[in-house]
Design a protein around this nucleic acid. Structure first.
Lengths: 136, 136, 136, 136
DNA sequence: GTGGTCTAGACCACC
DNA sequence: GTGGTCTAGACCACG
């Protein structure tokens, strides 16, 4: 399920966070579902329990999961909603990026081609994979 | 000219690179222009010479400038062209980001509003600042 | 009667203790009353018998109940009195908290408004829920 | 400066957070001040660097400090303001506590005595110490 | 068995 | 030198 790229420059714990968010958005994880335990994920991903813990702590802080000591971690009831809100806020960052593009001579048509490509029907076939860009 | 934010999460050397690229794109730097010397930049920006050097080395590696030992660093003839190509390649990353948006329930209309906002009228007034958004 | 929030950060056994104290203070439990048996509470609350036992042991230790092997657990004669004393001792903790508030710039008026709100009219309508505020 | 109680039931990293907040509120730390480095604090408090790091990360997340890799951690410009806001929000929690008191038979006069004690002039002499109650 | 905390020691990028 | 990340292995409270 989870897939860690140890060579990536994005921290492992962020990869886990990003993929968990992805799973929630795609419906692989639904509200109330139990996440794999820290120890299980640790051995499956060959990642130190501490690193798993750090990821889950952050997800808990973002109210995407609820960690109950002694019982496990569970997807929050409003996880999907929270993610939707977060992405909406990211639209502002998109503007900054687009402005850079404009200055670099990228035309509106170029951008529109991208938008169409993603938002038309073919979209279903696209997988983002661990997909969050590596910023490196 | 250059403006460094010491408190920023983006490394100082990356800020210098980003701003240099910005200056090229905006025509402040043109092909053949001589960059300020490492020593000058160092004192003006209150930045360690090593850090300046690291930025210039990277710009040289990207063929945006040409460093001539003993004479200085100069904007390459095809600097503008290289930057355009680079940004074009970044359009692919844009698709990944847009796909995330789509999965999160952001509508095409939401994105279009952003695109229009950036590529229509108000554009001239927008400054990208140090360019790359902070926050890592 | 009892209501357990499995997702809460406060341990289940503490929830049981807190609610029992609440029931005593509110007169739902009176001196001499018999508590539900460990077995009954266990199934009703879907909680491990060990957890129930732990809560009752703690209540016994605090002299709020008296457990008679083979017969059950009963509210102590002086349970109400003990609870009053305990809360009085907590007034000292309140001072610490208030001092923090004062340092943080909260005015006496701000605090007074709270006090008035709680100790004036609307009081009868307020339910403390499981009593102790969650979140650790 | 910092004082850690290893025997306390409140996690060491929370003690560090609480004391740092205290130092800010009391003016011992002012906006722009540099915090001791992770390594320094680590040896001074005989606490693992990881634990220090965890505390500083949380303070950074709360915008009370700004951690700049390679340079250090610094008190944010609006740290005091943020703390003030946070405490204001805690007034709501105070109401819950007061309601418990009321049910337990604590009179309004008892509470008022506390409030007066803290908010009158003698206040300057009170030290909260590492003061955050141990919740244990 | 679970999550939460901590120690000890390591490597990296940045300055 | 700095902060950021990670590993390895431990202990605790809770269920």
């Amino acid at each position: 399920m989870y897939l860690i790229d140890a060579m990536s420059r994005t921290p492992v714990y962020e990869q886990i966070i990003a993929q968990t968010e992805d799973f929630i958005l795609k419906g692989i994880f639904s509200a109330g579902d139990k996440l794999p335990s820290v120890r299980n994920l640790s051995v499956e991903l060959s990642v130190n329990p501490n690193t798993i813990q750090k990821a889950l702590s952050e997800l808990d802080r973002r109210r995407l999961i609820t960690s109950v000591p002694g019982k496990g971690s569970f997807i929050s009831e409003n996880a999907m909603e929270i993610l939707h809100d977060a992405k909406s806020r990211e639209l502002e960052e998109l503007k900054v990026k687009l402005t850079e593009f404009r200055i670099a001579g990228i035309t509106k048509a170029d951008v529109m081609r991208c938008v169409d490509e993603v938002f038309e029907d073919g979209a279903a076939a696209i997988t983002t994979g661990g997909g969050h860009n590596d910023q490196g």
